[in-house]
Every structure is written in structure tokens, then in C-alpha cells.
Design a protein around this nucleic acid. Structure first.
Length: 678
DNA sequence: ATGACCAATTGA
DNA sequence: CAATTGGTCATG
């Protein structure tokens, strides 16, 4: 409507209803004019907003300046979500800072809209996101997606109830930690606001969630916040319960992937608003905006669940260590096992060991290894194991750990034991389930009418079986004992203190109230049979994880080769010595963590371009490109490694590669720094 | 990415 | 000589 039309007829000519509409539209037009004017008018104080725009392109991964309209002066705070015009499009972004002036020589565009004045990206987390992006040669926008959960407007409108008052007297942490040498020093520093850093290996049977809760309570009593990262939801539950028992209810939040968007955002806001000072969660929690962070804890850092599967694939341990460094916090890198990376922290002097004395460990558990009996005998349970189970059942529950289905080695002829091989490619045959035909592990060919190449027999046997068959076998051996299984999609979180047998796959072991009277580790040779860099480290981690659930004075028995170094480390309960020796080997063979290693994967042409663009440090070793293993993707992979001290320059070179590649519109390649497997 | 801009190339 | 295409550059 134009001004002329506006005044075309007198108001008296109009019907009352129509007149109201016109008045209303006039008022709206006026309001629009004033709003436009206000927008054109920049804010009186700090009229420049530095904005991180959510754009995928690597070379645009830096802040851009916008003017802050006066109307947004109060709401466009650092950390707020905004919409801005960028390269002709409306894109999302975060305000990372406000400034009095801009370095940018051209005209600045105004912020389009403040989506929410809630400061969800704190300066500390923004700095962490930048460091993680740099470390993993990724973009900040990718890391931001991992760090800040999606907004939930309804939830945001609700206030976050503050945590109740702390009990005046936090329970004695020193007593809980008394089995550990040097614990008093560590805890004293922690309580007084210091930043002690430790690699922590509790003795078998230790109630580690309770120890974490005590360390957290000391930190909170000293006026600082705590962040705990654990591998999975069950561990979150355990630590959560321990925190409730030590701190009282409502002092912490639990962040897990499987809560819905509203619940997730509510918990996030409780943290960012300072209503809760302690956070426990799975890997995404590593970015939680805990106020005045004083302590970071990672439990079982060797578990591959800590490795983020989305670009740029950061590992919780590295995120937390970067954070401890940036924010000057204390750190606890804990687990029954000691990862090579944790051992490296001790070698460089970055952290100190926090472990129980040998005497205490010896008194806590006895571990034995027995060789497997003749495989022709149709049982996997040697008599020594049977005896241990029988006597342990008189005291309480018994845990039996059995390798997963996925680890089943090749099938063999039922009669002559000749390994069954694929007729197409001679790969090993596997059984996916009881009803499906055997298939080849290499080419996937389904073998319908298999017959043994040696004797012509048509029956197959699996030399090693999954948890269901193990349970069956044990059921026949102990017919009057209750038998439970925990694996795959029916994971049990705990079992009562009753004489029963619990068969579980690695990582799915239930906790026993009061601990297991006995722990049995079956088929250890199978876990060791995988061909991977970390096979031995991973095998020992799994065994220690199960054996750690034993009660003080309980017994552990493993079936396998007593001469194997990993099993010897188990018998001596020596995660430290094992990690140390393993790291010596890594050093000699130029493998992580002694070196920093990265891969570049993609189409052959794209990887070729990347290779010419990459300017790695002089000492870098470039291997490949070689075709990626696994059925015909056609992709190739480049491996680049440098001495550990040059890790940062390698990361930087790879980041630069991605920026140049993206600016020149070359085909994408996937860069992975510290890939968990190779 | 997307759009702007410039230069070289093509067609009448 | 204009129209078209391809490359480079910036994005606030």
C-alpha cells in the first residue's frame, strides 16, 4: 500500500472493521520504519560482533565481523546463537566476541537476528573447539556440532533450578583412596585448588566410581567444577549413583547420547548456567561448559567408545587433556588397564602415577592361567576352570567372559578338523547366526552346499562359540546353578550377591554387588588372534576390565598360553609394566604414541592432489598411497607420520591442506589424525 | 557453496 | 564485436 492510496478516501467512507485493519497496518508500517531505523543504528557500546559462521568450507573457518544493531545490543552476547547474511545466504553462527572496532577494511553487514541470547558457547569452550579443530586438522564448525547440542526453545524458556547447598562436611576422600600410594598428595593439591595430573590404575576390585566421586567432592568443596568422561551409559549410571551418594542428590548432571533433545538440552543448560558443577557423561560430555573447571577425569581411555566416529574424529582423552592444559585443571587418566598414551604422559613427566602398592594388589586377587585342553575334546572348559567355578560359587557369583561372536575364527570340518575355506577366494568361513548359511569373511560369498575338501564330510563345527553356546555348556556342567548372560542387545548392568554364573562378552560384564567371587576368561588366544596394532593392549584391557570386577580376595583364571606377555601381565596384575614394554616397542617400530600418525583417504585422484599440496614437516615419512582394505570402494589411503614432537606441525600442515583444497574446489579427502586403528 | 568479476574463447 | 565459458577470488 502506498501513501497516496493511504489517503485516497476519508476514514468516514470506511466500514468500521476495515478502518481497524487500515489503522493496524499503518501502525505496523510505522513500527517497521522505527525497527529499520534502530537496526541501521549500531549499538552504542561494542558495535562489532565477531561471528563464527556455520559453513562447511575449511578456508572459511575463521570469525567474520558484523555490526550489532542497537536493538540487539543487549542480546548479541558472546556465546549467543545468531543468524547472519554470509555470501548471499542466511547462515547460523555463534558470537564469539564483541569489539569496539573491526580490522576489516570494508563495510560490515548487520547481524540479521539473535536466535537466542543464551550464551551456549563459553569462551573456554570456544578456545577448546579451536584447539581440537587444529589438533585434528578439522573445521571448527564440525567440532562445534559435537560441542553444543541443538537448541530446544521450550526448554530454554524454563529456569534451571540451582543445586542444593553442599553438605558442610564432605566425607573423607583420603580413606576411600587409602590403597593408592601418593593419593594424599594428589588429593591435598586437588582440594587446595592445585592442578595435579595423574595416570591412575586402581587395584582389582576397587570401587572406582566411588573414588571418582570422592575426588569430585573435594574439588567441588574447593569451589571448582568437575568433568568425568566414561565409555558408555552403564558407567555413567554407576558414576552418577556414586556422585549422589557422596555429594547428595541434584549436584551433578549425567549427559548421555540416548536421552532426547529436550532432556539433553535441559542438562546442558544446567551446566552452562552454573546450576550444576559436576558432569559425568560419554564422549560428547568432554565439551560440557562446566564453570570454573578444576578437574577432568577419563575412565578406561583405551576403550574405543571414547573415539568420536564423526569428523574430525576427536578422542575424549585428547579433548580432556587439551582442556586441562588450557584451563589449568587437574587431571585423572584412569582405568584398570594403562593405555600406551597414558604411559606416554608418565614418560614425558606430564602426569604422575597413582597406583596401589604391589603388596595391596597381591593381597587383593590371585590370577592363574591354564592352557586350553586338546581341542578335539568337545569342551572349552578345562578341569581347573571347572574346579574354580565350583568352589567360587560357594562364596558368590562367578563371571565368565567369552569373546564375541564377531571374533569367531574360521569354521572347520566336524570330522577331520580341516579349516573350512571359501570356494571362491579361499577365505575363512564364518557362521553369522544359527539359521543362516556359512559365509566368507573376505568376499561375503554364501557357501550353501559345503563339503570338506579333505574327507568329503558335510558337517561343520565352530571351534569357538559365542556366549549362548558357552552358557549352554556351563549349564550342563552346573545344572543346579542359575545362569545369566549379558551381551549384545541384552546387557545386564548388575547382578545380586548370589551364587550364580554370569556369561558376558567383553564390555557387557554386569557389576556384582560386593564383587564376583571368581572371574573366568575363556578363549584368550582368540582375542589375541586379531591382526591389529593394538591387539595385545586391547586384549589385556578387556581381561583387566572383567577381572577388576572381582571382590577383594577373589580368584581369576584365564584359559590360554601362559607364556604370552599379555597373559603374564595379567597374572602379575601389572598394567604399568605391560604399557611400558609395549611403548618401548612402539618407539622402536615408529608407531603411535611415539610418533604422531595421520591418514588421508579418498579417490585416487583426490589423494594424489592432496599429496602434491601437502607440505609436511621435513622429518615426515609419507607411505602410500595404497588401496584401502575391504571390498572394492576404490579408495586409497596415504599414511603420514612424524616424530611426536612435530605432531603440531603435522596437524597444521594437514589443516592447511584442507583449506587450500577447499578453496580450489578440489575433491574432498578424509583426514584422520591419530586413527584408532590402521 | 555461491556469486562477482575478468579474461580468453567462440560465433556471426 | 557480442555472447559464452572458464578460472580466480571473496564471502564481514
Amino acid at each position: 500500500m502506498t501513501a497516496t492510496e493511504d489517503h485516497a478516501g476519508g476514514p468516514g467512507d470506511m466500514l468500521p472493521g476495515l478502518r481497524a485493519v487500515v489503522d493496524d497496518s499503518r501502525a505496523k508500517a510505522a513500527a517497521t520504519r522505527t525497527r529499520r531505523a534502530a537496526e541501521a543504528q549500531p549499538a552504542a557500546v561494542d558495535p562489532v560482533a565477531r561471528v563464527l559462521v556455520d559453513v562447511q568450507l575449511a578456508h572459511l573457518d575463521r570469525p567474520f565481523d558484523y555490526t550489532v544493531p542497537a536493538s540487539m545490543a543487549e542480546s548479541a552476547v558472546p556465546g549467543a546463537r545468531v543468524k547472519v547474511r554470509f555470501a548471499g545466504q542466511d547462515v547460523d553462527g555463534f558470537v564469539v566476541a564483541r569489539a569496539a572496532a573491526s580490522e576489516h577494511p570494508g563495510r560490515l553487514a548487520p547481524l540479521r537476528r539473535v536466535v537466542s541470547a543464551e550464551p551456549v558457547l563459553t569462551p573456554e569452550v570456544a578456545a577448546l573447539v579451536a584447539a581440537v579443530a587444529e589438533r585434528y586438522a578439522g573445521s571448527r564448525s564440525d567440532v562445534l556440532r559435537l560441542a553444543v547440542p541443538p537448541r530446544h526453545a521450550t526448554t530454554e524458556r524454563q529456569p534451571s533450578p540451582p543445586a542444593p547447598q553442599l553438605a558442610a562436611d564432605p566425607p573423607a576422600a583420603g580413606e576411600a583412596w587409602s590403597a593408592h600410594e601418593h593419593a594424599a598428595t594428589f588429593l591435598t593439591h586437588l582440594a587446595s585448588g592445585g592442578a595435579p595430573r595423574a595416570v591412575w590404575n586402581p587395584p582389582p576390585g576397587a570401587d572406582w566410581p566411588l573414588l571418582v566421586a570422592h575426588a569430585a567432592a573435594l574439588t567441588v568443596a574447593g569451589g571448582r567444577g568437575v568433568l568425568v568422561c566414561v565409555p558408555d551409559g552403564r558407567d555413567v549410571e554407576r558414576v552418577s549413583a556414586a556422585l549422589d551418594s557422596v555429594l547428595g542428590p541434584d549436584h551433578h548432571v549425567a549427559l548421555t547420547a540416548d536421552s532426547g533433545p529436550a532432556q539433553r538440552y535441559r542438562q546442558f543448560l544446567r551446566v552452562s548456567r552454573g546450576a550444576a558443577r559436576v558432569v559425568v557423561g560419554t564422549r560428547s560430555a568432554a565439551f560440557a561448559p562446566v564453570r570454573d573447571l578444576g578437574l577432568v577425569v577419563i575412565w578406561d581411555d583405551g576403550d574405543d567408545l571414547h573415539a568420536e566416529p564423526r569428523a574430525p574424529y576427536p578422542h575424549s582423552r585428547e579433548v580432556l587433556l587439551l582442556r586441562a592444559e588450557q584451563q589449568g585443571t587437574a587431571a585423572l587418566v584412569g582405568g584398570f588397564a594403562r593405555s600406551c598414551e597414558a604411559d606416554y604422559l608418565l614418560r614425558t613427566g606430564w602426569a604422575r602415577p597413582l597406583v596401589a602398592s604391589r603388596d595391596h594388589v597381591r593381597a587383593s586377587v590371585s590370577v592363574a592361567v591354564v592352557p586350553g585342553e586338546d581341542r578335539a575334546i568337545a569342551t572349552r572348559v578345562p578341569s581347573a576352570v571347572r574346579d574354580l567355578v565350583r568352589s567360587a560359587l560357594e562364596q558368590g557369583p562367578v563371571l565368565v567372559q567369552t569373546p564375541r561372536h564377531g571374533y569367531v575364527a574360521s569354521l572347520a570340518c566336524e570330522r577331520c578338523r580341516t579349516p573350512a575355506r571359501c570356494r571362491v577366494c579361499a577365505g575363512p568361513l564364518l557362521l553369522a547366526g544359527p539359521a543362516s548359511p556359512p559365509h566368507c569373511r573376505w568376499c561375503g560369498h554364501q557357501e550353501l552346499g559345503w563339503a570338506c575338501s579333505e574327507c568329503g564330510h558335510r558337517g561343520l563345527r565352530a571351534p569357538v562359540l559365542g556366549d549362548a553356546r558357552t552358557a549352554e555348556e556351563l549349564g550342563r556342567m552346573f545344572p543346579s546353578t542359575t545362569l545369566r548372560t549379558s551381551s549384545g542387545d541384552h546387557v545386564r548392568s548388575s547382578v545380586a550377591d548370589r551364587p550364580e554364573i554370569v556369561v558376558a562378552t567383553p564390555g557387557a560384564e554386569p557389576v556384582a554387588e560386593g564383587g564376583y567371587a571368581g572371574v573366568v576368561l575363556l578363549d584368550t588366544w582368540l582375542t589375541l588372534a586379531r591382526a591389529d596394532l593394538r591387539t595385545d593392549e586391547e586384549a589385556l584391557r578387556r581381561w583387566l576390565g572383567a577381572a577388576g570386577l572381582v571382590r577383594p580376595g577373589g580368584r581369576v583364571i584365564a584359559v590360554g598360553d601362559p607364556a604370552h606377555p599379555a597373559l603374564q601381565a595379567l597374572v602379575r596384575w601389572d598394567p604399568a609394566g605391560f604399557a611400558d614394554r609395549e611403548n618401548d616397542q612402539r618407539l622402536a617400530t615408529h608407531l603411535p604414541p611415539a610418533v604422531r600418525l595421520a591418514t588421508v583417504t579418498g579417490e585416487p585422484g583426490a589423494v594424489d592432489d592432496a599429496l602434491t599440496l601437502l607440505a609436511p614437516p621435513d622429518a615426515a615419512e609419507v607411505l602410500g598411497p595404497v588401496p584401502v582394505e575391504g571390498a572394492g570402494s576404490g579408495e586409497v589411503r596415504l599414511v603420514v607420520r612424524v616424530p611426536r614432537a612435530l605432531g603440531a606441525s603435522l596437524s597444521h600442515a594437514l589443516g592447511e591442506l584442507q583449506r587450500v583444497r577447499s578453496a580450489r574446489k578440489l575433491d574432498a579427502v578424509r583426514v584422520q589424525v591419530d586413527p584408532p586403528t590402521l
